[in-house]
């Protein structure tokens, strides 16, 4: 597979390390009254879709960016690649 890195252009998948569903960005608040349940769902449950999947790849043999890649799990077609940090900021992850 080839991932179109937003900063570095097309790069072979072998340069990357895969983590999983991009929902792993949404780490729950530890002081939430329902934290135990939220953390369980966050850490363990997956949508695991057959189709478009937003997922985290790390450019370990490159610039060390974490990327959010939108990829079809049936065809492996990649339709979007974003810097995970941008996604995280957009999703309101801040102190």
């Amino acid at each position: 597979m080839i991932i179109e890195h937003p900063l570095l252009g097309p790069r072979d998948m072998a340069e990357f390390v895969y983590l999983g569903d991009a929902a792993l960005i949404n780490r729950p608040d530890w002081q939430d009254p329902d934290a135990a349940n939220k953390y369980y769902e966050y850490q363990y449950l997956r949508d695991n879709p057959a189709g478009l999947h937003r997922e985290l790849w790390y450019h370990e043999q490159g610039d060390r960016s974490w990327l959010v890649v939108t990829r079809d799990t049936l065809t492996h077609e990649i339709t979007n690649v974003e810097l995970a940090r941008d996604v995280a900021v957009e999703e309101g992850r801040s102190r």
Partner: peptide
């Protein structure tokens, strides 16, 4: 292999990736 898809018919999310 397809557990996620079939169990989604029952509205369940699983601790599984394919």
């Amino acid at each position: 292999g397809l557990s996620g898809r079939v169990m989604s018919y029952a509205g369940m999310r699983l601790p599984i990736e394919s």
